[in-house]
Design a protein around this nucleic acid. Structure first.
Length: 427
RNA sequence: GGAGGAGUGGCCGAGUGGUCGAAGGCAGCGGUCUUGAAAACCGCCGAGCGCAAGCUCCGGGGGUUCGAAUCCCUCCUCCUCCGCCA
């Protein structure tokens, strides 16, 4: 959650943020006041109890003191109940306040205001009109949208044959590449509980975007046991260190993980209804770093470059944009989006999003480190990014490497992962 | 799913309902000694809230009591054995 000391900075986001901030501030004032009153009463009770422990239990003095303390004790109990309520509502408000944008984030209202950081590679040229991937894939018989819909409904797709193999190959290619750059590979659970989602910021605000399982493991009616399909491996991997204190020597921690991702929000927008772009289920390799505050922005740049390597390795043209305040996600302090070129749709599409959350997630998930043995623990900075989205990479390959005869050439870097396959050809 | 056992500070581990935020040990930090290191000795050494005084925290929640790490209830987690299964 946001560091309460930075409430002013978050207002840069504009919109209705100010309302939530004001509401939280009011509650927090009341909380502090009540806390102080309660502490005074508790102090009095503690002192009185200490005196009592030295009295003869059979004396009249003892009995009198006991009767007197009964009143104080019940007043304290009442105050504690009230404070608990106040604390939880104040905490609840705080969990709904987004992160403060980094000073370098440009002010803007929509993605149209995102400045381009740089572009890499070149657009491929075609002697024919390039088709969108759904046409390429269907003609090759490797993307089966109808079967996906039959089995699970709209926005679920069956990959057949070469597309299925390509999916596997991409996962392995990416994980191998990242391992070479010092990321530790992790294979996490696909489901996550509330505490983990709260830690990374998906909850409590975005529950509607998630697939929630109808069954809980453990006793019913305990919200903490609710299980959700994870929307991104960022949740599992960042929460590897939920509620723990790391040694400074362990930082930066670098992880990569493959995991299927599930998002319920995808269908609601009514856009990207065709093809693989916006699915309820997709595969993704994720990069996560835990760092010190001093190094987090350098590490963000490094992580973004590691994600870019995947695309340049595949010979794909892309550009990197910096998200403006209006486009910045809830928990992010700064985000770079990597957008791959899709000739079949004549547009750039997000294929990776790399963010520095600073201490926002670390405060929620209580992930801290000790700068040196003599220091108090302080929150780490967390960084993550797609490295990269598998489904959209398939989209990019099908569109960029399509040939006049309907076949698709496999990028050289992937061939070792496909038994040397050089080309996907029509049946 | 069934039966038993256990959860205390970074780790191990004590703790008759009252002066216990908690003995002791290990690790860590500072110092003495040493050319340097080791050993030895001395000191420090959990976290959160609060400007501070102070308050809170012994797996979570609830209860009993003037007072709970200690008693009661409940849940969770881990370990052992049995069952089931990929």
């Amino acid at each position: 959650m946001l560091d309460p000391a930075r409430m002013d900075d978050v207002l840069r986001r504009g919109g209705d943020v100010a309302t939530v901030v004001t509401s939280w501030r009011r509650l927090d004032e009341r909380r502090k006041k009540l806390q102080a009153e309660l502490d005074t009463k508790r102090g009095a009770r503690n002192a009185a109890n200490e005196r009592m422990s030295k009295l003869d239990k059979k004396s009249e003095e003892f009995a009198a003191a006991r009767d007197e303390l009964k009143t104080l004790s019940s007043a304290i109990k009442e105050g504690e109940t009230e404070l608990a309520t106040l604390e939880s509502t104040s905490q609840q408000r705080l969990l709904h306040i987004p992160n403060a944008p980094h000073a370098s984030v440009p002010v803007g209202t929509s993605e149209a205001d995102n400045p381009v950081l740089h572009t890499a590679g070149t657009k491929p040229t075609f002697t024919f009109a390039p088709k969108p991937h759904w046409e390429v894939g269907e003609q090759l018989g490797i993307l089966d949208f109808e079967a996906g819909a039959r089995i699970a409904g709209a926005r679920f797709t069956v990959l057949r044959g070469a597309a299925s193999r390509l999916n596997r190959a991409l996962i392995n290619y990416m994980l191998d590449l990242h391992a070479q750059h010092g990321y530790d590979e992790v294979w996490p659970p696909a489901v996550v509980r509330r505490a983990a989602l709260r830690g990374t910021g998906q909850l409590p605000k975005f529950e509607a975007d998630l697939f929630k399982l109808d069954v809980a493991v453990g006793p019913d009616h305990v919200a903490d046991n609710d299980l959700f399909l994870s929307p991104t491996a960022e949740v599992q991997v960042t929460n590897l260190h939920l509620d723990s204190i790391l040694d400074a020597a362990q930082l930066p921690r670098k992880y990569c993980a493959y995991a299927p991702c599930f998002r319920a929000e995808a269908g609601a927008h009514g856009k990207d209804t065709r093809g693989l772009i916006r699915q309820h289920q997709f595969d993704k390799v994720e990069l996560v770093k835990l760092t010190t505050p001093e190094t987090s922005y350098a590490e963000l740049d490094g992580l973004r470059q590691d994600a870019e390597r995947v695309l340049s390795g595949l010979g794909l043209h892309y550009r990197v944009v910096t998200l403006c305040t209006g486009d910045l996600g809830f928990g992010a302090a700064k985000t770079y989006d990597i957008e791959v070129w899709l000739p079949g749709q004549d547009t750039y599409r997000e294929i990776s999003s790399c963010s520095n959350f600073e201490d926002f997630q670390a405060r929620r998930a209580k992930i801290r480190y000790r700068p040196s043995a003599a220091d108090k623990p302080r929150p780490v900075h967390t960084i993550n990014g797609s490295g990269i989205a598998i489904g959209r990479t398939i989209v990019a390959i099908l569109e960029n490497y399509q040939q006049a005869d309907g076949s698709v050439v496999i990028p050289a870097a992937l061939r070792p992962y496909l038994g040397g396959l050089e080309r996907i050809t029509p049946p």
